[in-house]
């Protein structure tokens, strides 16, 4: 059996969970790992490219996406009704090596960067997880995390909820054995550099514009300490030192 699949998946649910944020559940009977993503297509010819969307959750039968409506592609996805299909190619990329992580773990997100982290905290079952998440005004999607984390710390840009300011204000990496992060690149870079300085293992999930999502077009190449890497195939998860050392 091929390792990857390109198939029409039937949508089971597709509902807004906050302003402009949707949660889609679709049938997907194949294994998926935390931090992987799919190239998702909910339309025929336009837009031309499929869109990379992370796995929010999965159970071997279903896959869940949490996505923000940004432009035409995500808008078309948000219009999908239960019973309709989306074309999924994947799972793509290397996720978080959750099996190798032990002890106290900080999971840090900015905005929709929270999407890949639910399956991640589920996979970190032997660890003590602190979730630190930043949002613009209001948090979303956090209830699903509660059973799997010891503590949730929230920061917002506006101060309407939790700490007013950066999510990186909410933690000192030195208090943890490992840090996992997904969000805006400036936030991840700041955090990863702090981790490197304090010798804390840090995993960063990168974002890049992607055409193929499989490692064929070389459109998402990124300089790393180990040479040129495809964010889609060799990532999207990298060790902090690979990117920022």
């Amino acid at each position: 059996m091929p390792a990857k699949h390109c198939e029409s998946a039937v949508v089971i649910e597709n509902q807004p969970v906050a302003d402009g944020i949707f949660r889609m559940v679709a049938w997907w009977p194949y294994p998926v790992q935390a931090g992987q993503f799919f190239m998702v297509r909910g339309w025929d010819r336009f837009p031309l490219l499929s869109r990379p969307i992370s796995v929010h959750d999965a159970d071997g039968e279903r896959v869940v996406f949490l996505y923000e409506v940004r432009g035409e592609g995500t808008r078309l996805l948000s219009e999908k009704k239960p019973g309709e299909t989306v074309l999924l190619s994947g799972p793509a990329g290397n996720g978080f090596p959750t099996g190798q992580i032990r002890g106290k773990v900080a999971v840090v997100s900015g905005g929709i960067g929270i999407a890949p982290l639910l399956l991640t905290v589920k996979a970190l079952s032997g660890c003590a997880v602190t979730l630190c998440c930043g949002f613009r005004d209001k948090s979303y999607g956090l209830d699903a995390f509660r059973p799997y984390v010891q503590e949730i710390r929230v920061a917002t840009d506006s101060g309407k909820e939790g700490h007013k300011g950066f999510v990186t204000d909410l933690l000192d990496p030195a208090d943890f054995d490992a840090v996992i992060t997904c969000g805006p690149e400036v936030m991840m870079e700041k955090l990863a550099r702090d981790c490197i300085a304090k010798q804390v293992v840090c995993y960063v999930s990168m974002e890049r514009h992607m055409a193929c999502g499989v490692g064929a077009c070389l459109g998402c190449t990124h300089h790393t300490a180990h040479g040129a890497k495809c964010v889609c195939k060799d990532g999207p998860v990298f060790r902090g030192e690979e990117l920022y050392a």
Binding site: F46, L48, M210, C217, L218, G219, C220
Partner: peptide
Amino acid sequence: KGLTMEERFGNEGERVYETPSGLINSIGLQ
């Protein structure tokens, strides 16, 4: 993929850009 005698890293900056029904690429023979 297009081969050259020496290994090439390709171009810096954005490498792919979507247009209505098209794709503009600047891979630079990586």
